[in-house]
């Protein structure tokens, strides 16, 4: 029971992220000034406003911070924040599972699912 992912709208800041996703890589950014990683990635570090930010690849392991399964749609889907090994919590979907199999604190791993136009979308699975 997986959702049909909508195509992301890419822009100048997110283009690299989505190209990397097509190579099955989840990128976030870290700041070379304050050394803190952040998500979603942006040119200006949200912690110190430095533009000395660089892309880093996430290891792909995470734990579920919170989740909610949307029931009032044809194909129910589970939205979640997962806490990455690197620290930031990211908005995602939990796939390849039923809602009853999922709980806060559970370990999940990175996977990729195609959107309507074939763009690979980062998601997580138990």
């Amino acid at each position: 029971m997986n959702p049909i992912f909508k195509n992301p709208i890419t822009d100048a800041e997110s283009q690299y992220f989505w190209q990397a996703a097509n190579e099955k890589k989840l990128y976030l950014k870290t700041c070379n000034n304050c050394q803190k990683p952040h998500y979603h990635p942006r040119t200006h570090c949200p912690f110190c406003f430095s533009t000395n930010t660089q892309w880093i690849e996430a290891k792909g392991t995470a734990t579920i911070y919170s989740l909610s399964t949307m029931r009032r749609v044809e194909t129910p889907y589970t939205i979640a924040y997962v806490e990455l090994h690197e620290g930031p919590k990211i908005l995602t979907n939990i796939v390849n599972s039923t809602p009853e199999q999922l709980q806060i604190g559970q370990a999940v791993n990175l996977t990729f699912q195609p959107s309507e136009n074939g763009q690979l979308i980062p998601a997580f699975e138990p």
């Binding site: 992301p8 989505w18 949307m70 995602t92």
Partner: peptide, 19 residues
Amino acid sequence: SYESPYGTTVVNSYGMCAA
């Protein structure tokens, strides 16, 4: 760009807070 593929709605945003 980073959130639209995941089916964010008002109710599941607050659902995560409640959970």
